[in-house]
Design a protein around this nucleic acid. Structure first.
Lengths: 232, 232
DNA sequence: GGACTATTCAAGCACTCAATTGAATACTTG
DNA sequence: CAAGTATTCAATTGAGTGCTTGAATAGTCC
């Protein structure tokens, strides 16, 4: 094999991997991946949830699709996107966890925006799993309702954090409330814990989010009829 | 927490992760990561192995260092770089494996440059591990000598693929020779197998490379005194 | 079949990135 | 301390990226 040929192979090989790398190189795209890890979503929905224009959202989705990280399917008038594979979440998770270990900046960032973050130890997933079997424990899903509908921890109750102030009386009492949201860096659960403790309800957050729980193959459930026609 | 504040948090949070993503977004940088996964190397050495200019190599290494994927230490006149963490290889592995599953292009690419690639099933790592304990099996490390010196599969013999033609008679005879190199997409092992079979020696390649073996905590060894002063 | 609408495409802007070249830095070694 | 060298920095070029705006497409739904 000639030298030039080897160079060409190398360039094309690593070029292919770099295409996936490029898809991970934009903050907005990572945000979309995190949202899609919660479940299948439409373009307009994703645009609203991320605060981007629809056109921009669509373009980022194209980049993710070209890298084969997400897949699209048409449903009625809408196009719904989802992660192409469980391994896509695994990749995002590997990136996320490497970031936690290596970028001290991140902890400072979370602390700056939510001081109380480190006052209480989060509940580990293994611990919650055990307590769900053995004890009575109240688990709150504080993500927006659509995400709860697309899938949630088995036994969890939906209480989106925006509705928390007026629905506080509904919170079932128990020895402790555990709140969770999208992932370890998502502040929704932290905010929920803040409000619950403010109302005198003992609460802590789960260390990670729903996609992490699902990836561990811990029990999940979905709203009946939420996915409409779950094709394929 | 105000809306603008949430936006700022999101942007900075995902921005941090995107910085790591950007480091993975260039083919040359991925190539450097693959080389560094074999062991610690100097700048000039990396430049030679990758076919880049020294200045360009240095600049890419800076990008990797800013993303905290690699670390540098001075040794005499040289600066030696290494992966910052085992998790960095895990991330590269996740990217690589996702690529294999999702980019059909890759298989076509490898086949185009090395037609015989799919004629013989590669040996799995678990199988080689078992056979190393139970049977007599000849394991050839066909990477350049420095990489062998920095670490190799316990019991493997060094025979860089460039020297194979003239050192073929040295190859110890056995029921089968297993050749390995840097990773599943590295063609050095394929070329070695080609030459061995051409000489009538039964041979197959290992499915993956040395870093994968090491990550599995299978037994490895390093050349005595190869790492010079193995600090910390 | 015609109106409607979710999504994508296309063009344009400011900005960032990859690679080259040549010079500067920092360190060792005699 | 002076010479020498491995590495990094700085400046430049051309290509590529992210986001916006406005139009086109391709479907549904009545």
């Amino acid at each position: 094999m000639r030298k030039a040929q080897r160079e060409a192979y190398k360039a094309r090989l690593f070029g292919q991997f770099a295409q996936i790398g490029r898809a991970l190189a934009g903050a907005r795209r990572l945000e979309l991946l995190e949202l899609l890890a919660q479940g299948e979503r439409g373009v307009e929905e994703l645009a609203r949830a991320s605060g981007m224009s629809v056109a921009n959202t669509s373009q980022h989705l194209q980049v993710l699709r070209q890298a084969r990280l997400v897949e699209a399917r048409k449903q009625g008038l809408h196009v719904r996107y989802r992660l192409a594979d469980e391994k896509v979440f695994a990749l995002w998770q590997a990136l996320r966890d490497l970031g936690r270990d290596r970028l001290a900046e991140l902890d400072r960032l979370a602390a700056e925006f939510f001081q109380e973050r480190h006052e209480f130890e989060p509940v580990t997933m293994a611990e919650l799993r055990r307590r769900l079997k053995e004890e009575r424990v109240v688990v709150l899903d504080v993500r927006p309702e659509e995400e709860y509908a697309a899938g949630h921890i088995a036994g969890a109750v939906s209480l989106p954090v925006e509705e928390m102030p007026r629905r506080l009386p509904e919170v079932p009492r128990g020895p402790e409330v555990v709140a969770y949201c999208r992932g370890p860096w998502c502040l929704l659960a932290d905010q929920a814990v803040h409000e619950l403790r403010g109302a005198g309800i003992p609460a802590r957050r789960l260390e990670a989010g729903f996609p992490d729980w699902k990836a561990k193959r811990y029990p999940v459930e979905a709203e009946a009829g939420a996915g409409k026609t779950e094709q394929r």
